[in-house]
Design a protein around this nucleic acid. Structure first.
Lengths: 163, 163
DNA sequence: CTTGTCACTATGATTATCATAGTTACTATC
DNA sequence: GATAGTAACTATGATAATCATAGTGACAAG
């Protein structure tokens, strides 16, 4: 690869976010952070990415103001990673990706009989399916509004990765 | 790069679409297709990607059932590229990316005084801003529902790229 | 004082990407 | 009828990002 072309100065909004999100490692790390997994080793294990890549991407995300690095222990000194408001706002993008996958990316029956992850609206309890607005109460769905329940098969996969 | 790790068999819906969308070239090509630019040379020029990359990604997108290759002329034989329903459904993801960018990815005043692209709901005429549901009529917004008007600055950039 | 934990850094092989140039199959112009 | 143009690609070589594996530093626990 030559130095990859830089699109961060394009005025096109899709091009600008493509520079950030058009990267498997970034998307997977954001998934972990949105799921509330904040520790380096957990992120590395769940994504299957090497520590060097995780380190490089987290540094970049901190520099972009999407992630914040915090000390959660002084002795020994240990850090973890938190999404900023700018980072939390990326929930909408990942949720759209999830919705597309649930509809288009699985063979029939591949996830059992339900979706790979069942999402429930915290405030009203409705199963949101793959909707953009809550079918129970009509509210828009954003960061923190949903509670996800992975299917048994997906849960087994996640356990296998961290073991 | 070693062979990139394959996530296409993960059961996680974000992981599965990350395999597809976690790629700058794919996102940029999808942007062009969603904007109705279907010809190879136009896509290459507007994205700034080399023809080899465009060719490889379009082949992959055809194999994934996201894009369809059609002959638009017999003599000389010429082809262009159309989104399938599976491809059109990716509008939601790119629209979420656009919304995030409009809110978080620009310095104040960088796009003039409005957004980089102003979107209007075709059926009711309302300016949708960065909403997920139309603020005019309350309808959900999907592929084909919006008419985009790039800001003068963005338009100038697009003209410069194709010249 | 050895083993374990966590957040990383270092090294080398592999390969995707970019820039540039060339190819094929026609049509249009001089 | 030879040259130039157009559209959709393919070929080639240099570069650098990625992966696998191993190692480091600072501390805690047994």
């Amino acid at each position: 690869m030559p130095k990859r072309a830089d699109l961060s100065d394009t005025l096109c909004p899709v091009g600008r976010s493509a520079e950030l999100l058009g990267d498997r490692a970034v998307l997977l790390i954001l998934r972990e952070l949105l799921f509330g997994r904040r520790r380096f080793e957990l992120i590395a294990a769940n994504t299957g990415l090497g520590p060097q890549l995780v380190s490089a991407r987290l540094k970049m995300l901190v520099a972009e103001g999407i992630v914040e690095r915090r000390a959660y222990s002084e002795r020994p000194l240990r850090h973890d990673y938190w999404l900023t408001d700018k980072g939390k706002a990326l929930f909408d993008v990942l949720y759209a990706m999830r919705n597309w996958s649930e509809r288009w990316a699985y063979e029939p029956g591949e996830t059992g009989d339900g979706p790979a992850i069942r999402y429930v609206h915290r405030t009203c309890g409705a199963d949101v399916g793959t909707a953009k607005i809550c079918p129970g109460c009509g509210a828009e769905l954003g960061y923190g509004d949903l509670k996800g329940e992975p299917s048994p098969a997906l849960k087994a996969e996640q356990v296998a990765r961290t073991a």
